[in-house]
């Protein structure tokens, strides 16, 4: 029997109908929910309520959601999921850089939102998996021995590929921006050559995915970055 610990969730959206449906849809998942309808209120609520999770709509009446995100991120470790209608990719990268943990584009499905929240629930901001071995669906990575196995067969992997995979797996479920990956793996050279990441992700997929054209482990988040998909976390 699993002990259910209530997670405090703050919903920030200027549309009451959206707030209501989100609250009513998420209540059965045992969240303790509070709402805020403006940027100012969001920052106040975040201080008083001290939520573990924040769902933040980017288009707020009074302030830019990005500013609210920055304000909250100054002191809070809460996981923040952004709701956006903007298609501009640069905005999404900017959001991740400013400390958002994930984002969803409206309209989204409730089940997708719940899945994302579950991933975020397991960690606080910047939290990583701290296990020597991670296994999922026939995939196994050993951070100590620096080996990767697919269906119990060890595969050959270069050190750069391993480094890339380690970053993705340790943040499993979370989007890592291509920029961050490039900077962590290649430094300045990576930032000047954004296609490096595509080449290496491509070759990693050829090694670990059953069909590199329809990947199930390393998911591309269009124009933003990559996410290591492990469904429910171990």
């Amino acid at each position: 029997m699993k002990v259910i610990k209530t997670t405090k969730l703050l919903i920030v959206d200027d549309e009451q109908s959206v707030r209501n449906s989100l609250r009513l849809g998420l209540e059965p998942c045992h969240y303790e929910i509070q709402e805020a309808s403006s940027g100012k209120e969001a920052v106040e609520r975040a201080t008083i309520f001290a939520p573990d999770l924040i769902i933040l709509d980017l288009c707020l009446g009074d302030t830019d959601g990005l500013q609210v995100l920055k304000d909250i991120r100054k002191w809070s470790n809460a996981s923040i999921l952004i709701l956006t209608v903007r298609d501009a990719e640069s905005d999404k990268v900017q959001l991740l850089d400013a400390g958002a943990d994930d984002y969803l584009t409206k309209p989204f499905s409730l089940s997708e939102l719940m899945a994302r929240l579950r991933v975020l629930e397991r960690r606080t901001y910047a939290g990583e998996i701290n296990q020597p071995i991670v296994k999922y669906n026939g995939f196994e990575i050993n951070f100590v021995a620096q080996t990767v196995q697919i269906d119990c067969r060890e595969i050959k992997i270069t050190s750069t590929e391993f480094q890339l995979l380690r970053i993705l797996v340790q943040a499993a479920g979370k989007v890592i921006s291509a920029k961050a990956l490039l900077a962590q793996v290649w430094g300045d050279a990576g930032l000047e050559n954004p296609h490096y990441i595509r080449i290496y992700i491509g070759s990693l997929r050829k090694k670990i995915e059953k069909n590199p054209s329809l990947p199930t482990f390393i998911i591309t988040e269009m124009s933003v970055g990559y996410r290591f998909n492990m469904g429910r976390l171990p």
């Binding site: 109908s17 209501n20 449906s21 989100l22 009513l24 409206k106 309209p107």
Partner: peptide
């Protein structure tokens, strides 16, 4: 275009989320 997109998606999100919430609550 952004504002049309926003004005349109917000109510649609409400509709879809509300439907999902109804279903979710059994």
């Amino acid at each position: 275009l952004n504002s049309i997109s926003h004005e349109f998606r917000t109510p649609l999100t409400a509709i879809l989320t509300a439907t999902a919430a109804l279903q979710q609550r059994g």
